[in-house]
Computed example of a mutant assay.
Amino acid sequence: MAALADVKTRRRSDYNFALEYRTRWMDNDMYDHMNNSIYYLLFDSVVNTYLINHCSLHPPTSTSVGLVVHSNCDYMSPTGFPATVDLCLRVNKLGKSSVTYEIGVFERGVEEVKAVGGFVHVFVERESMKPGPKGMTDALREGLGKILVEKSKL
């Protein structure tokens, strides 16, 4: 994981994939900003959108599934309804059967990052719920490799 001082300086250009999200009234909590649980829902959405559209993953029929084994989020400043945010995605580490994602949340019209979070997926065989001998599929590895950042940019 990157140091908090580093993630505070993230910019959209630090990421290789983005998904637009328009906040909803129900995303706000009683403090009039987006509830922390919504951030995790959005992290899951941007990652799975990428996996389905760019890694040939078809969750209902795939023989492997990604299990979340770790998640985190650092909040820099609030956002809420009404707003449009860009959920920016990159891969910080790609292992044999695991992948570490980082997601930056940017509000339209604001350069500074609102939140940076992520999670670790371990891909396992659906039947055994254990990593397969090959780890993840070639299509998955190839697609994730397209958004893998260089170690010097971590």
Results as ranks from 00 to 15, higher is better:
D27H: 02
M1D: 04
H58C: 06
S97Y: 09
R141G: 07
S71P: 06
G117F: 08
G117N: 05
S62W: 10
K96E: 12
A2E: 14
V122H: 11
C55L: 07
N48P: 06
N72T: 06
G95W: 10
W25H: 04
V149W: 13
S45K: 06
V85E: 06
K130P: 04
L87E: 07
K8I: 02
M136D: 13
A139V: 03
G132A: 14
S64H: 13
D6L: 09
T9E: 13
T79G: 10
I103R: 02
L67D: 02
P133R: 15
T63L: 13
V120I: 15
S97M: 07
A18Q: 10
V105G: 01
F106N: 04
V105Y: 01
G135Y: 11
V124M: 05
H33Y: 04
V68E: 08
R22P: 00
F81M: 08
R90E: 05
A139M: 08
E112I: 00
G143R: 03
N48D: 11
S128T: 15
I38G: 00
E150F: 11
K134F: 08
I147H: 11
R11H: 09
N72Q: 09
A2V: 10
L87Q: 10
I147Q: 10
I38W: 12
L148E: 15
M136E: 11
C73Q: 05
P78T: 14
G132M: 08
F106E: 03
H54V: 03
T137V: 00
M136L: 12
G132S: 15
T23R: 00
E102P: 01
L19W: 02
K8C: 08
M76G: 11
T61H: 11
P133A: 14
T9F: 02
L41A: 13
D6G: 02
K130M: 13
P59K: 04
T79P: 01
K93F: 05
V69Y: 08
M136F: 10
Y31H: 10
N36E: 11
L51M: 15
